[in-house]
């Protein structure tokens, strides 16, 4: 029972740390940029909606806050999606994009962009979002169709990767024959970034992401039964077929949403769940689900901050930063854990 006690302590500490980091990331993010606003002003403007200094007010309410919160929601979504897929495929490198989700989105977006440039001089952002989302869901449905026929999970992983290659091939083919001006939008999107995120986008993203997160949380019991593999999960009474479908749908919705609003952002989905597992020293979904989401939010906000300030005024794509930070972290974690296991 002593162990249970220390476990609870550890979970408490991790969540406390994450909460502090979350608040710190928000303040730091709002505080940093081409225009400096003091902490006191930030708090005043956020909590009282004081409009006496319209410049600061606009920067906070119209630019920094929506972008920040979008990063938080989408970062959390990516991380959770990664956790689900790693559990599902029992494979540590399974991430949100292995099921061909980002390449499906990119292909669809390429088709839509090239087809519509005749009518629209610039593609409206809502159209980008909708087409990327549709593309993601399309590749998800394809994977889902295969999952009914396939018993072996790693085969499904391979199919996801193959679908991803096919979509990339189609996209490359289209880009080959497209004019430079037609694919500007596509290039911009495929770098992955949060710039231009406004309240409307944030609201749309939150409406999709937050209920999905809650739904996933309610699945934590069957997810925990998955720790020993599908055979044992079934023997415990889990409806495997239904559970598989739900997991694919939920993780796809989460990553499709991110892809649609911010482009393909790599590494959060792979790295953050690992970081959480190592901090919490457990695999229990009941703690891993909220922790992954929170940690993903913090990670994404910090990466976005680095993306927009490191080489200001030039803004990096957030995908560049997440990979540059995420990949070394994963390598370091893997090695340190291996060393610990061998002791």
């Amino acid at each position: 029972m002593k162990k249970t006690y220390t476990d609870t302590m550890r979970y408490g500490m991790v969540f406390l740390t994450l909460a502090v980091l979350f608040c710190a990331a928000i303040v730091w993010n709002i505080n940093t940029g081409s225009v400096d606003i003091s902490l006191k002003d930030i708090i005043r403007i956020i909590f009282t909606k004081d409009n006496t200094d319209p410049a600061s007010y606009n920067i906070i309410w119209k630019i920094r806050l929506p972008r920040l919160l979008t990063a938080a929601v989408l970062g959390g979504a990516l991380s959770l999606s990664g956790f689900l897929l790693q559990t599902f495929f029992r494979n540590p490198i399974a991430g949100p994009f292995v099921l061909g989700i980002s390449s499906g989105a990119k292909m669809f977006l390429a088709i839509v962009t090239i087809a519509l440039t005749g009518w629209f001089p610039t593609i409206p952002i809502s159209l980008t979002v909708v087409s990327a989302f549709l593309g993601s869901m399309l590749s998800m449905l394809l994977v889902l169709a295969f999952s009914g026929k396939i018993r072996n999970m790693s085969m499904l992983l391979v199919i996801g990767i193959m679908i991803s290659y096919i979509c990339s091939a189609v996209t490359d083919f289209l880009i080959n024959f497209a004019k430079e001006s037609e694919i500007v939008n596509l290039t911009h999107w495929s770098m992955g970034n949060f710039s231009g995120a406004g309240w409307a986008n944030l609201k749309a993203a939150a409406i999709i992401v937050l209920p999905t997160v809650v739904a996933v949380f309610f699945l934590s019991k069957p997810i925990s039964a998955y720790a020993l593999g599908e055979g044992y999960a079934q023997s415990l009474g889990v409806n495997i077929k239904l559970f598989r479908i739900l997991l694919i749908i939920f993780s796809s919705i989460l990553s499709a949403c991110v892809t649609a609003f911010a482009g393909p952002i790599s590494f959060i989905g792979i790295a953050v769940p690992h970081i959480c597992r190592i901090m919490l020293k457990t695999q229990k979904p009941l703690v891993m689900i909220p922790a992954s989401f929170l940690c993903g939010s913090v990670f994404c906000m910090i990466c976005d901050l680095i993306a927009r300030t490191m080489f200001a005024p030039t803004e990096l794509s957030v995908g560049t930063v997440t990979s540059a930070i995420g990949a070394p972290i994963v390598i370091w974690l893997m090695i340190s854990r291996r060393v610990k296991n061998e002791e």
Binding site: F218, K221, S224, A225, A227, Y232, L236, G237, V238, L286
Partner: peptide, 12 residues
């Protein structure tokens, strides 16, 4: 404890 799955509540 995972063997207790069929008997535990909705959050296990």
């Amino acid at each position: 404890a995972s063997g207790r799955y069929p008997y535990t509540g909705s959050f296990g």
